[in-house]
Amino acid sequence: MSAPERIPARRVSTRDPELLARGELHVRGQIREASNAVLLCTVKDGDREATCVYKPVRGERPLWDFPDGTLAQREVAAYEVSEALGWGLVPPTVLRDGPYGEGMCQWWIDTPEEPSDGDGLLALVDGEEPGEGWKAIGFAEVAEGRTALLVHADDPRLRRLAVLDAVINNGDRKGGHLLVDEEGRLYGIDHGVTFNVEDKLRTLLWGWAGEPLTEEATGALEALRDRLREGEPLALRLGELITAAELDAVRERVAALLKSGRHREPSGEWPAIPWPPV
């Protein structure tokens, strides 16, 4: 996702969700590449100002496998789980009223205008092996019947994101949903098709499939398991955003990851890679 223009805004010291929740939204334009209505906004509260994305519920396209009008809540739920894991992989995201009704409001992530070579997270390479520092995703047709190997970086930031996606059952982890900000911090965006009870995991981040989870990931999942117990604040908050059955499914996915001790593998019952991949 990219802005139609760079909008100057007063910098705030932290990406504060309270500014998103309480500030006044001013629509500046529409991001037309998106499949649902996505509005680029400025949010203001006194002398504080920031750029954000606002996705009103009324602008969501109906999907056959998700209840109508629930994508905004799922985006907020993904942020809550990301925060609970302690990895900060999703920009601050809130559910609030706006100029076009209730919707999701998310902090805008500025990316470098000219990213350095080190920011590359995806690549196409010749041959059948990914090479050092890369993980294989699969072969892709590039031109005139020629194929190349699609790879992603063997990057701990992406590895954490692969765990988050397995927990929230992300059905659409495309390359364009990976953003690296000007400080080199990785974020994942566009989490509307998540938390389905049925296995919908569809992602580019299969490079660690079947490999043991890191100690860091295991510790984060154990802490998340505890915070998902009945009556815990996180469980109560998620209960406001997704259904009881979907919350139980989150608990089951966390338990399954901890029991196996390994990264998820494709189920074979659902397309493993989103289309288009980027």
Rank of each mutant, 00 (worst) to 15 (best):
G101K: 07
W134Q: 07
L122V: 12
V94M: 12
G192C: 09
V125H: 01
L158F: 03
R15D: 15
A3W: 10
E132D: 14
L234E: 03
L40Y: 13
A34M: 05
L238I: 14
T243R: 03
G120K: 03
L149F: 08
C52K: 00
W108E: 02
N170F: 05
E33K: 06
P91Q: 11
S116Q: 12
L178H: 09
P91V: 04
V27A: 13
V94E: 07
A272Q: 05
V180Q: 14
R6N: 10
W270D: 14
P156K: 00
Y100W: 00
G175N: 07
D97M: 08
V250I: 13
A140D: 08
T70H: 07
K55E: 11
I109Y: 02
R48G: 11
D47S: 14
A50Q: 10
D126A: 14
L234N: 09
G138R: 00
S2T: 10
T111R: 15
N170C: 06
L122F: 03
L71F: 10
S116H: 01
T214M: 02
A3D: 12
A223N: 07
T93P: 14
I7K: 03
A123V: 07
P8V: 04
L204I: 11
L234M: 06
W208N: 04
I168W: 09
A255F: 04
L149D: 05
Y54H: 02
R146V: 10
A77E: 01
A143H: 11
P8D: 12
G175T: 09
W64D: 15
R262D: 09
E102L: 14
T93E: 13
Y54G: 05
T214H: 05
M104S: 10
K135P: 04
A223E: 06
